[in-house]
Simulated scan of single mutants.
Amino acid sequence: MSIDVSVILPVHNAEQWLDECLQSIYNQDYSGAFEVSIYNDHSTDSSSFLIEEWSKRYEKKGITVVVSGSTARGPHGVGFARNCAIRQSSGKFLCFLDADDVMSNERIGKQHAAALQHRDALIGSQFTRIPHDSMERFTKWANSLSREQLLTQIYTSHGPTVIMPTWFCSREVFDRVGKFDETGKGTPEDLIFFYEHMKCGGDVVRVDLPLLMYRYHPHCETFSVHEDTIWDLRIQRLQDSVLTRWTSFTIWSAGKQGRHFYRSLHSENQEKVTAFCDVDVKKITKGCYTYEDSKQRPKPKVPIVHFSKAKPPLIICVKQDLTGGSFEQNLASLGLTEGTDYFHFG
């Protein structure tokens, strides 16, 4: 029997969450054929025992289970584990899941239907959080992005516009990128893969149902990634895909984030910056920003203007949803089009 969907599950010392995770796979109401592909990445807790016990339950229900793992030289990292689970799987579509998260009963069915309609896309979904009050701003942002913003807000500090544990795609979509980065702990393999997918012309789609409970806890892999690593990836992707097409642009924010953004640019893109814009009277009155660390002589001086006088296109280095709506109102007053006249970077 051919397998429609492979659930890709990397596991490392997940004993406290694994029962709930595996139960959610067992409870799927999908009527097609699916398998569970598990790579146990050097777990030293009871994860191996739980996997073995659940495999027996899956087999009794007619669900194929493929399990492999490594006990040598410690864990290899989530990117390596996902790649191994994918290589040993056989489904036409891949459903990604982390061992500390929980799927709704309808997840595979809903995302499989969406993937059939969008063969070239990474399919995500809305999600809820555990605990329910964790990372409220991030959750609100990710769940409320429009179809267009899934493609335009990929440079923000939040990371991929559809979160990794909700990803679902055809095997062809995965194979086009090739694999997840296997550098290991501290590497944002999901963001790297996401950007490569976009570079290959891939689409991003979200099923607007909460198909995953996304767990927040102190041991999340996210906390092992330094923010400077994320910053550098975002800067590089923005320069390669957007700034190379622009002859000039304005940076919205003459504060710390805007200045950091400017200093992070390649010199040829720094020269394209015609102005900073802001609402802070003190910054505007100052007149300009001088790049003191520049090796150029004379040192570059960039004008600072009121946002209402900003000339598009703009890169916005202001964080969203933190000013009681005033920033959003100011932006809306300019009548600009996101993805053409401006991109969010904050």
Rank of each mutant, 00 (worst) to 15 (best):
C95W: 03
G201L: 08
G186S: 07
H158N: 09
K311F: 01
V78N: 01
V279H: 09
M135P: 00
E136H: 01
M135L: 08
K299Q: 08
Y262S: 01
K319A: 11
S24V: 02
R215D: 02
T71F: 10
R107D: 04
I108W: 01
K309Y: 06
D208R: 15
N143T: 06
E189F: 15
K179N: 09
A115G: 06
G32T: 00
A275I: 09
D100K: 07
S24E: 02
R129Q: 07
K60R: 14
C200E: 15
S146K: 09
I123H: 03
P210H: 07
Q16L: 03
E172V: 06
L334T: 00
E338K: 05
G339C: 08
R215C: 02
G124I: 00
Q270M: 13
F49G: 00
T285Y: 10
C84K: 13
H197K: 12
F138V: 06
R297A: 09
E52V: 03
D175Q: 14
T152I: 06
Y216F: 10
A115V: 10
P313H: 04
M103S: 11
G69M: 02
K199S: 11
P218N: 11
Q296V: 01
G159I: 01
A332N: 10
T156C: 11
C277Q: 05
F80E: 02
R87S: 13
A85D: 04
I108D: 01
A114V: 06
K199D: 12
S89A: 14
D133E: 12
C200M: 12
R87L: 11
H76A: 13
V279P: 00
L94F: 12
S267E: 15
K60E: 15
Q329K: 14
A72C: 04
G69L: 03
H42S: 15
L151A: 12
I25S: 00
D280N: 15
E338H: 06
I63W: 00
S267H: 11
V204Q: 01
Q23E: 14
S170D: 09
S46D: 14
S68K: 09
G109T: 10
F194I: 12
Q257G: 05
W141E: 11
N143W: 03
P298L: 11
S134E: 11
S253W: 00
I63L: 06
D203E: 15
F96N: 02
K110R: 13
R259H: 11
E35K: 10
A14D: 14
Y342N: 07
Q239S: 13
G74T: 05
V5E: 00
V279F: 11
E227Q: 14
R137A: 13
Y58G: 06
R234W: 01
Q28V: 05
T244M: 12
G258C: 02
F343L: 07
T337F: 06
E172S: 15
L336F: 08
V5S: 00
V66S: 10
H112R: 05
G335T: 04
H158W: 05
N83W: 07
V102I: 15
N330F: 06
I251K: 05
D41Y: 08
W17E: 00
Y39D: 03
S294L: 05
A114W: 01
K140D: 12
P218Y: 10
T247K: 14
D341W: 04
R87P: 00
L238D: 08
A72T: 13
T222M: 12
F93A: 13
D45P: 01
T161W: 12
F276H: 05
D133Q: 13
T44F: 02
A33D: 03
V225G: 03
H260V: 04
G74A: 03
